[in-house]
Lab assay of single mutants.
Amino acid sequence: ALNRGDKVRIKRTESYWYGDVGTVASVEKSGILYPVIVRFDRVNYNGFSGSASGVNTNNFAENELELVQAAA
């Protein structure tokens, strides 16, 4: 299972961040479909780089994520 702070690569092909590595911000335990919230260094097309207006978190299912580096 994934944990907060883990570095993960995104495998959801239609995602803006496909192939990117993000950090797990939190994992919901309530049984929702996309329980893993991942935070990225770059914002998506809703904002400009360096601006706070873009979105830099997204929810994924565990099977859409590949663990790159476990949290220390």
Rank of each mutant, 00 (worst) to 15 (best):
A1R: 15
A1K: 13
A1I: 11
A1C: 14
A1G: 11
A1V: 13
A1P: 12
L2C: 08
N3M: 14
N3H: 12
N3S: 12
N3P: 00
N3W: 08
R4I: 13
G5V: 03
G5R: 03
G5F: 05
G5A: 02
G5L: 02
G5W: 04
D6Q: 03
D6G: 02
D6A: 05
D6Y: 03
D6K: 02
D6F: 04
D6V: 04
D6M: 05
K7V: 09
K7N: 03
K7G: 00
K7E: 04
K7A: 05
K7C: 13
V8Q: 00
V8M: 02
V8P: 02
V8H: 02
V8K: 00
R9W: 04
R9A: 03
I10A: 01
I10N: 03
I10V: 14
I10D: 03
K11M: 14
K11G: 04
R12F: 03
R12I: 05
R12C: 05
R12Y: 03
R12T: 06
R12Q: 05
R12L: 05
T13P: 13
T13Y: 10
T13G: 05
E14Q: 10
E14H: 09
E14C: 14
E14F: 10
S15I: 04
S15E: 01
S15R: 01
S15F: 03
S15P: 01
Y16F: 14
Y16R: 03
Y16K: 04
Y16C: 07
Y16H: 05
W17A: 02
W17E: 00
W17P: 00
W17R: 03
Y18H: 06
G19S: 03
G19N: 10
G19K: 06
G19F: 10
D20Y: 12
D20L: 09
D20F: 09
D20S: 07
D20R: 07
D20A: 07
V21N: 01
V21E: 03
V21P: 01
V21Q: 03
G22E: 01
G22C: 05
G22Y: 05
G22M: 02
G22H: 01
G22R: 04
G22P: 03
G22S: 02
G22W: 06
G22I: 03
T23E: 12
T23Y: 08
T23V: 11
V24D: 00
V24A: 00
V24P: 01
V24H: 01
V24E: 00
A25R: 10
A25Y: 12
A25L: 15
A25M: 15
A25E: 15
S26W: 13
S26E: 11
V27Q: 02
V27F: 12
V27K: 03
E28C: 14
E28V: 12
K29S: 14
K29C: 11
S30H: 09
G31D: 12
G31P: 09
G31T: 12
G31C: 14
G31W: 12
I32P: 06
I32E: 13
I32T: 13
I32N: 13
I32G: 14
I32K: 08
I32F: 09
L33W: 04
L33E: 10
L33Q: 11
L33T: 09
L33D: 12
Y34Q: 07
Y34F: 12
Y34D: 04
Y34E: 05
Y34H: 12
Y34V: 03
Y34C: 09
V36N: 01
V36Y: 14
V36L: 03
V36E: 00
V36C: 04
I37K: 12
I37R: 12
I37V: 13
I37W: 15
V38M: 00
V38I: 04
V38S: 00
V38E: 00
V38Q: 00
V38H: 00
R39N: 05
R39G: 04
R39E: 07
R39Y: 10
R39H: 07
F40D: 00
F40M: 03
F40A: 00
F40R: 00
F40I: 02
D41A: 09
D41F: 13
D41L: 12
D41Q: 13
R42A: 05
R42M: 04
R42S: 05
R42W: 06
V43C: 15
V43M: 09
V43W: 15
V43S: 06
V43F: 15
V43K: 07
V43T: 09
N44P: 06
N44L: 12
N44A: 08
N44K: 13
N44V: 08
Y45P: 15
Y45V: 15
Y45I: 15
Y45R: 11
Y45E: 15
Y45Q: 15
N46L: 07
N46T: 11
N46P: 14
N46H: 09
N46Y: 09
N46C: 15
N46E: 15
N46A: 06
G47S: 09
G47Y: 05
G47C: 15
F48K: 06
F48P: 15
S49C: 15
S49F: 10
S49W: 08
G50V: 06
G50L: 06
G50Y: 07
G50C: 15
G50M: 07
S51N: 11
S51A: 11
S51Q: 10
S51P: 11
S51F: 08
S51I: 09
A52E: 12
A52W: 10
A52F: 06
A52T: 11
A52P: 11
A52I: 08
S53Y: 10
S53L: 13
S53V: 13
S53C: 15
S53F: 11
S53E: 14
G54C: 15
G54I: 05
G54M: 05
G54P: 07
V55A: 06
V55L: 07
V55N: 06
V55E: 09
N56E: 06
N56H: 06
N56P: 04
N56A: 06
N56K: 05
T57D: 05
T57Q: 11
T57K: 06
T57A: 08
T57P: 03
T57G: 04
T57L: 08
N58G: 15
N58Y: 11
N58W: 15
N58K: 07
N58Q: 15
N58C: 15
N58S: 15
N59H: 12
N59W: 12
N59Y: 09
N59T: 08
N59K: 07
N59S: 12
N59G: 13
F60G: 01
F60V: 01
F60E: 02
F60W: 01
F60M: 01
F60C: 03
F60L: 02
F60K: 02
F60D: 01
A61N: 11
A61E: 05
E62T: 10
E62G: 06
E62V: 15
E62M: 14
E62S: 08
E62P: 11
E62W: 13
E62H: 14
E62I: 13
E62Q: 09
E62Y: 14
N63Q: 09
N63H: 14
N63S: 14
N63G: 08
N63M: 07
E64P: 00
E64Q: 03
E64W: 01
E64I: 02
E64N: 02
L65N: 04
L65A: 02
L65V: 09
L65I: 04
L65C: 05
E66I: 09
E66F: 04
E66D: 07
E66L: 05
E66V: 06
E66N: 01
L67V: 06
L67C: 05
L67E: 01
L67T: 02
L67S: 02
V68S: 01
V68R: 04
V68G: 00
V68K: 01
V68P: 01
V68N: 02
Q69G: 07
A70E: 13
A70C: 12
A70G: 08
A70I: 08
A70W: 08
A71S: 08
A71D: 09
A71C: 13
A71W: 15
A71K: 08
A71M: 11
A71P: 07
A72T: 14
A72W: 13
A72V: 13
A72M: 12
